[in-house]
């Protein structure tokens, strides 16, 4: 009799793959909005035309532009004016330390941010000066010279003190760009920093209270407490997170989350940080997977040979 097994096998595989394709790739393409990456080009922002001078920038940052009134630049010996909890109480969120801002954020974005924060951050639906709703960061209106030159000088200064872009670590990227709003419990990260190991419960509770106070201000500022991102790499996936960081409004129109303006490299590092939090065993998974596959293929070959041997007498 003709052997029907290959045909049966093809039919079983074909129906299985068809069902898989329908319920996974096809269904998900219909259920979720697809957002293409903009390659972190920030094409909507004006190009930088001036070349800045770092020394002039430094004078502006500490002087006329008054950046250090709110921002710390610890790298240059300029501490924060207040602690994180007090700052959040005042501004809604703790203003970032600018030590490495020059490496983490796109230059075009920084230039626009300095002049018009709500515009660069894409939160103009929330902060509209005409309606009396000011963004907590005061726009820089110029220090008497040509404003674009002054902005370029400030950016040049920030770039001059920052680490080299290739030295940006996952931790640095996440803590600066995301960590003042988002906790990552699995990495012990809170909005006011990593929770240390305390010897006494009293100290631990005191720290927790500070976090709660910070979160209370943050919740008022954002409308709801931004989610803990511990498992986001598994719940959202790399593509979603990357395109969401690039432009939150493209995914979720009207969201309170600002566009943070990171460079493509910083975004990669943020993803790496989230992988280290929510998918810690990915290297082990691939390595073990390869070994298991080799083992199983050998097992299958022996099973096939055994079957051939046993069935030789049956025909």
């Amino acid at each position: 009799m003709k052997n029907k097994e290959p045909l049966i096998f093809i039919i079983v595989v074909a129906f299985t793959l068809l069902t898989y394709w329908l319920v996974e790739p096809f269904a998900h393409s219909q259920m979720h909005k697809h957002v293409e990456s903009e390659k972190f080009a920030y094409a909507d922002l004006p190009a930088v035309t001036k070349t800045g001078v770092a020394a002039t920038g430094k004078e502006l940052v500490t002087g006329a532009a008054a950046c250090t009134g709110c921002h710390a630049i610890t790298k240059d010996g300029l501490p924060a004016a207040m602690d994180a909890v007090t700052a959040a109480g005042t501004y809604g969120v703790n203003p970032p330390d600018l030590s490495n801002a020059g490496a983490l954020y796109d230059a075009k974005f920084l230039s626009d941010l300095i002049k018009n924060p709500a515009h660069a951050l894409k939160v103009e639906h929330k902060f509209d000066a005409a309606k009396g709703k000011m963004h907590p960061m005061t726009p820089f209106a110029g220090a008497g010279g040509e404003i674009d030159q002054e902005v370029a000088d400030i950016v040049a200064y920030l770039q001059s003190i920052a680490v080299k872009p290739e030295e940006v670590t996952p931790k640095m990227a996440f803590e600066n760009a995301c960590g003042r709003c988002h906790a990552v419990g699995y990495e012990k990260w809170t909005q006011i920093g990593e929770k240390p190991a305390f010897k006494f419960q009293k100290e631990s509770l005191a720290f927790d209270i500070k976090v709660l106070e910070y979160q209370e201000s943050l919740t008022k500022y954002m409308g709801k407490l931004p989610p803990d991102l511990s498992m986001y790499i598994r719940s959202r996936g790399e593509h979603f997170i990357s395109t969401f960081i690039e432009n939150p409004q493209a995914h979720l129109e009207g969201t309170a989350m600002p566009r943070v303006g990171v460079t493509a490299h910083t975004a990669e590092k943020v993803i790496e940080y989230l992988e280290d939090a929510g998918d810690t065993k990915r290297a082990e998974r691939t390595a073990t997977g390869k070994n298991v596959m080799i083992f199983i293929v050998i097992f299958a070959i022996f099973a096939l040979l055994w079957k051939k041997q046993v069935w030789r007498d049956l025909h």
Binding site: I296, A300, I301, A303, W306, K307, Q309, V310, W311
Partner: peptide, 8 residues
Amino acid sequence: SKDMMVVG
């Protein structure tokens, strides 16, 4: 033996 081949 055939079961095991399919299982493999």
